[in-house]
Design a protein around this nucleic acid. Structure first.
Lengths: 235, 235
DNA sequence: CTCTGCTATATTGTATACAATCTCTGAATA
DNA sequence: TATTCAGAGATTGTATACAATATAGCAGAG
């Protein structure tokens, strides 16, 4: 019974988890410098575990490390987003294809529950907008992660985690638009149907469309509000 | 003019490069413990950069780190290899598909040169067997990396590097069999043709076959010599 | 002879000290 | 005014010391 896959015992691992969360949630905005001493103080440890966390985050593409000049929260150009979504479509499409052959009843139920939660949330009201986004992102993650899990390829899961995490910070506003959410919900149901019928080809096709649709919504929102375009400047 | 993509100035980076090479070439066989102090002495540095290199190697899946128990050169089960080759087929197939639209004349020439080198080497004699394998692996890498480059997706390249590096240690004996090499060479020419004609579908299909063929040769060799099956034991 | 628990040893994890490098400021010069 | 250079300060990179943890061997009980 070893703890290989729950690497959260050492403080270096905890720092990594924290850092990852802070980056994804935009607390350290893209392009901002990540000074080791400051992070160490923020998280109450010395620079040693911070450095390890940074190296690991760099390996995953969350930060960039410039030798002798430090780490920077990675920023993304529009081209980066297009690259990322191209790969997401490829990998998640493949995952959906594989999942159609192997998914279990329990996994289907989990996905249905997430899909339902996303649908019902359209009629719900939350204390704070942030709570709502948090909830939606979480349920959405359950839906997608369950497919990756059902695909039965551990490395595929790892890769998807890397790819999906990166632009998460931008996806917030995706969730603010009811019409787009309805369409996404529709995709979820279609994908679920395909999986239930064991139709891998269809599951893949719908998953790809679902992801490309998300990409397009994101890029459109971007064009709309050019004010915050600075977040896209590379370095 | 920054050195972002040639991270080889700090000794931590050099240690990482060394470690990676030693792992891939089987100097540290799968399953062997990687004691920090020993690595540090082998490479003439302190434990600090060694640890960073290990963290990075773990993020890439080359080693496994067990909290408070140290790092181990990752070993692979047959199922691991199947997972890996499944993803390679997906990613390299996609790369070939994209490359068909964008590949440049210079890149074609580079690939032709590598393909020719691989063909001619069948009639050549090398000082040592190891030199030959080294040469073949290198030319083969040029062929495949050029396709990834031509696909024009930086993240795709990164992912492929991660996936391809892993089983390299096993692929050695692949190169010892002339018949299989001839077939691989034929695939290379077929892929080149498809790329030259801009036929992405065909390039993808042939690339996938090429990779699955490599996988099957690998698995067959494995079955043949069950003596060294220990290398496949997990943990 | 086997099992349990304890201690010694080996090794990892973290903090800190110091060296190496970069950056920024401002003065001197043209 | 623009430019170059020096040096102070900030920050990274590495080594080392120490703390925390795991491992192995051994003694003693059953």
């Amino acid at each position: 019974m070893n703890k290989l896959y729950t690497n959260d015992e050492t403080s270096a691992d905890q720092v990594y988890q924290q850092l990852r969360r802070l980056l994804i949630e935009g607390y350290y905005p893209p392009g901002s410098r990540l000074v080791e001493e400051r992070l160490a103080q923020d998280l109450g440890v010395s620079r040693t575990p911070v450095r390890q966390a940074l190296v690991r985050a760099a390996a995953e593409g969350l930060v960039q490390i410039f030798p002798n000049r430090g780490a920077v929260a990675r920023s993304f150009t529009v081209d980066d987003l297009i690259e990322i979504y191209d790969l997401r479509a490829l990998l998640e499409g493949h995952a959906a294809y594989l999942a159609a052959q192997r998914i279990t009843a329990e996994q289907i139920i989990r996905m249905e529950s997430a899909a339902t939660a996303l649908e019902q949330s359209l009629a719900m009201t939350f204390e704070r907008r942030q709570d709502e986004v948090h909830f939606l992102v979480e349920q959405n993650a359950i839906f997608h992660q369950t497919i990756a899990e059902a695909a039965g390829n551990q490395r595929l899961i790892t890769m998807l985690n890397q790819i999906v995490a990166v632009p998460l910070q931008f996806r917030s506003f995706y969730w603010y638009q009811p019409e787009q959410r309805q369409i996404s919900n529709f995709f979820h149901r279609t994908i679920l149907n395909a999986l239930r019928l064991g139709d891998g080809e269809r599951a893949r096709a719908m998953m790809r469309e679902h992801i490309f649709y998300g990409r397009d919504v994101l890029l459109q929102s971007r064009n709309a509000e050019d004010a915050s375009a600075s977040a896209f400047r590379e370095e």
